[in-house]
Nucleic acid binder design. Structure first.
Lengths: 206, 206
DNA sequence: CGTATTTTAGACCAGATGTACTAAATAAAT
DNA sequence: ATTTATTTAGTACATCTGGTCTAAAATACG
């Protein structure tokens, strides 16, 4: 029955989000589902196997998102929209980002995969920024406008906004958190906008 | 013997940094020290008590740093120096930042204290930025230069640069990591500098 | 020196966890 | 319908953990 496996993933996801990966055991997940723990082990070798599959779900959602956003329409509007939607998707799997370091430490395979994906993310931003410069929307690079640093700032905020939200915004609603931190990321771009860029973003903000 | 307590803190700090807080038990620390675990419990009620004292050590170091940096000399040079030195100090206690969310979740008292300190951090940056604007070093605030967002960006990077380093820079030397991520933080300010500000920072970078 | 206090060790307990193994129940297939 | 494969439950085990209690050793003190 394929159904059981799905239920396990779903329950695990919710429990991970609630209590944190470290505080959820195989036995807890099975108890929650009214299953024997040996049954759970039949479907997943261990907790890491569950996490790996959940990570794959995230990836699939991200790929679907990328596909839905037209590549040729390479505007800042699309960039910001993908931020909002990406943030919304990852929120449902927030345990993964909040316990990121724990997970990476105990799962070297996932760690390497994560590093590979990061390279893709880097190139994506790199080329987006280049085309925004070419379009006169972002300022040209200079000693005080080093876009490699910008991309690394984006990386940290993308990786850890959920951790930060857990500490500083506990109790706030999903929508509020997602839009706050989405704005935080977008504001990284603002001081790099040209006048033309600003007027384009002005329209988006209406 | 006060000595034992110090040794426990020292060993705990090293083990936490090495293995992560979740993977270190009271019994492990005592084993490492050749002590009985009941002896450890005699000195510290539990693991959280150890972490709390280590956190106090961090605070004391931070206070000493703030005192050493003259308040009246409110330049961007001092700001950047305190970043470098602050980053260096916290590196030795990196477990605290890497396992921040875990620690906050299981230690509500520490969480509140951390939130209080964050308010101080906020006001500090707020007033520093204001005086830098007044001095013509940073640009005036505007719709595309919202300094509240800048301060929140600073917050996330300050809180999670060590986590990010653990994932992306494993194996790199301390000095490299500290200076890389210090630069990352400083670059948050760069696009907000006036021409005057740029020329001042130019001298610092020589 | 003898007494009181602090520090340390050892033993024990109850609970949770991962893992392995066996057997029953259910579903699929021929 | 009988066999085969898949899915599930149950049990048992070794390990680790936090916590408590008791007593010995070390230290401080009067």
């Amino acid at each position: 029955m394929r159904e059981t496996k799905k239920k396990i993933l779903e329950t695990a996801r919710v429990l991970f989000n609630e209590k944190g990966v470290a505080n959820v055991s195989i036995r807890m997940i099975s108890r929650e589902l009214g299953l024997s723990h040996s049954n759970l082990i039949y479907h997943f070798k261990d907790k890491n196997a569950v996490i790996e599959l959940l990570h794959q779900q995230i990836l699939e959602a991200a790929i679907a998102l990328n596909a839905s956003i037209k590549e040729d329409n390479n505007t800042i509007k699309m960039l910001f929209e993908s931020v909002d939607q990406g943030f919304r998707i990852i929120y449902d799997y927030r345990f993964f980002m909040i316990d990121l370091n724990l997970i990476m430490r105990e799962n070297p395979g996932l760690h390497s995969k994560f590093l590979e994906i990061e390279q893709l993310r880097y190139s994506m931003y790199k080329s987006k920024i280049e085309s925004l410069i070419a379009a006169g929307i972002m300022k040209a690079e200079s000693s005080y406008r080093n876009y490699d640093y910008l991309i690394k700032q984006i990386r940290i905020i993308s990786d850890y906004w959920l951790s930060s939200a857990q500490i500083y915004e506990s109790g706030e609603k999903v929508d509020f958190i997602v839009s706050s931190y989405g704005n935080l990321l977008k504001h990284l771009f603002y001081p790099y906008l040209t006048q033309k860029g600003e007027s384009i973003v002005d329209e988006l903000r209406m």
